[in-house]
Design a protein around this nucleic acid. Structure first.
Lengths: 407, 407
DNA sequence: TAAGCTTTTGTGGATTTCCACAAAAGCTAC
DNA sequence: GTAGCTTTTGTGGAAATCCACAAAAGCTTA
């Protein structure tokens, strides 16, 4: 007879019942390792469980360990109980886990601390029955969440498109939707290789809900793009934190789910909620520039780091109107064309590398004297003084702009 | 009895009559040394006169010599005949000159080659009578010119404000107004210290009409500004020619007429007549930037030479909208404020001087090691890598933009 | 006033840059 | 193919830069 066949008023009651039957501490999580319920019988509890209960979610380092050990992949691929060995670095004692399924989707997990006893086949069977019973309880949670989600999505798009005009008005909305928020914040945009389908969406959700590097009160998906509102933890290191999250998100998507994220970028970090739109636009600019200037933008993730490329859009627009003709560049290009030389490219690399002779020669695989000769040629042909920053800068920008314009 | 009391059909006839009476070659010029008429009796003629007749105006080097020798100042200040000695460098033989007056204004000059004879008092008297007689003949020319001038002015303003849309249409208008023109051209703008009054206007006209460095088919005056349409002689050196003219105009206004021209600038050199407006706008931008960035713009006259300052207007506009916040600059400025240091200024000079340590130290009157220390401080405080051109450039531009914005 | 900090100046040596000169290699056009 | 050009690579020495270390000077604060 199924000991979980009765009706339960709450998930807490259910957790206690399972604990009672299996004689061990029980923790129930949703698919994103958020704590849903836990048993309260006084048993031994390991540090991992304590931390989970206090934070109402599983600590990220524990999740990372479970991925590394292959526990979670196993749970995501079958509905059988999985034995987990001690992982002492993260304070995790021996336990048995099982995933809760609905159709082909995992709704959550039940974790049972193993204590000092041997699990019999009967125990495993009971756990499987518990998982089945938990399904219906979890489904009810899901439905309530989905309704709210729709309203939240709409709200986020309004923020991104600048629908609201006052900081306090936005604050009020966050409050009404029970979304905890504070500043400073920024918008992160990821561009995926392919349109984001619902399975990938679930995986994204998983990573976003489990990460504890930064707080993500809102996110939405738009074709190949994933847009997040992110709140870094510290004030000082905010930019680094976001950068770090961005990179770990991309590598986790790749490693855990084999999903290719082409790139990501984030806009300015602001305090005023009306600046969400701006940060969003800036994040998109970062992506655009990274796409155009591949190589040299490799390490750039933020709008701040874009440097002069911040205003390339603006300049390009003017350039299209025929502004900013650069005689020097025209002459150099003509010369290159005619004599099959590489003056422009040489100059570009030289300027890229902060006018460092040695590095440039190395980068171009030429003798330093060859570089010197070419640069002398550049001054002559282009009638330019490379010691004059103004001329130099203008030329540099025009070279870059030229590439940008021709893409 | 006055031998010039009769009516003359043309100025040529008049010139011949004067030549006959005084027994020497006669040349009549307007106030700007344009040839109006000359006698044709076969007499000896010096190279200066020959060149004047062939070009229909006095060669510029001859005019310059006459200024240097004090001849022209004398002619402009009295209606007495002036004896001019040989100036062999410019092929000018001995002659006697007199200015033609109407009220307090000089309308032109009569030049008489002295030949190998001695001038008597009677001869001088005759020359004075000739000058008086020439007055009425010249006035008729003036009136015809003034009417045309009004139409020309209107046309020029239409060009400057972009009233015409087609190159050929403009060409046609030039043709109808009998204004010889060809490309490439550019617009030059001078800014005077004070509003330009009619006496200064006449002096300006004098210099513009006598210069042969570049061709000036149109010019107009607008409060403190003088706007020219200029056509350089050569294709290759066009920019240098305009630059040279610009500087000599300013120094001539100063030396000859004691009129202060604050500054001048010229726009791009273009081929298409519809680009007159653009060149004009660019010339104004040059003046604006020279005003704002005084020192470092000293040698800059053209839009080309403006370099990165070409798009400062554009950037400033964005900056006013709250774009381009530069964390580094903010931090540096805060640090300077708090510790009474000069990190920003030091950095600015360093970047101005193309990151040259020695020159910067010299310019700031500090020890090179002090500079090194300050730069190290800049990297630390501003969290910036001065070897990264992108960061460096952005910071440089933001520093300059900051100054520009605060003026 | 002394202690603790930042800033300036000094010294010396390793490294890099700059420059002039020259030989070698590669292209182009007759 | 060879003469005349441009381009590349090499050598060596003067000048400039970079860097570590340290002393001195200047400010701030208890």
């Amino acid at each position: 007879m199924n000991p979980f066949a009765t009706n339960f008023d709450s998930l807490e009651e259910f957790a206690d019942r399972v604990s009672e039957v299996l004689q061990c501490p029980i923790t129930i999580e949703d698919a994103n390792h958020r704590l849903i319920a836990y048993s309260t019988h006084e048993h031994y509890t390991d540090p991992a469980r304590t931390a989970t209960i206090i934070n109402r979610r599983v600590p990220e380092k524990v999740i990372n360990s479970l991925w590394r050990e292959g526990v979670i992949p196993k749970l995501l691929s079958s509905d059988e109980p999985v034995r987990v060995d001690t992982i002492s670095e993260v304070g995790l004692g021996k336990r048995v886990a099982i995933s809760i399924w609905k159709n082909k989707e995992v709704l959550g997990f039940i974790w049972a601390l193993e204590m000092n006893r041997t699990w019999t086949n009967k125990d495993f069977e009971l756990l499987k029955q518990a998982a089945k019973a938990a399904k219906n309880l979890l489904l009810q949670l899901q439905i309530r969440k989905n309704k709210k989600e729709e309203r939240v999505q709409e709200f986020f798009w309004k923020l991104l498109t600048g629908h609201f005009t006052s900081h306090d008005e936005i604050k009020e909305h966050f409050h009404l939707l029970h979304i905890p928020i504070h500043h400073p914040f920024c918008v992160i945009v990821f561009r995926f290789k392919q349109e984001i389908q619902s399975d990938v969406e679930r995986q994204i959700n998983y990573i976003l809900k489990t990460t504890q590097q930064i707080h993500i009160p809102l996110y939405t998906i738009d074709h190949r793009q994933l847009i997040l509102l992110a709140i870094p933890k510290s004030m000082e290191q905010s930019s680094n934190e976001v950068k770090h999250f961005l990179n770990s998100f991309i590598s986790q998507m790749k490693e855990r789910f084999h999903v290719d994220v082409i790139d990501g970028g984030f806009g300015g970090i602001y305090d005023h909620y009306t600046e969400i739109k701006k940060s969003y636009k800036e994040a998109l600019t970062v992506l655009k520039m990274k796409e155009t200037f591949g190589k040299q933008m490799k390490m750039v993730d933020s709008y701040q780091e874009l440097g002069i490329y911040q205003f390339f859009d603006l300049l390009l627009e003017k350039k299209r109107e025929g502004e900013f003709r650069n005689e020097t560049l025209i002459k150099l290009k003509q010369y290159d064309e005619k004599h099959h030389t590489n003056l422009v490219k040489t100059l570009e690399v030289f300027l890229d590398l902060d006018s460092n002779v040695n590095e440039t020669a190395k980068a171009l695989n030429i003798h330093p004297n060859t570089l010197a000769y070419r640069l002398k040629r550049v001054s002559e042909v282009g009638e330019i003084d490379l010691k004059n920053i103004n001329q130099k800068l203008k030329l540099y920008i025009d070279i870059k702009l030229d590439q940008y314009g021709n893409t």
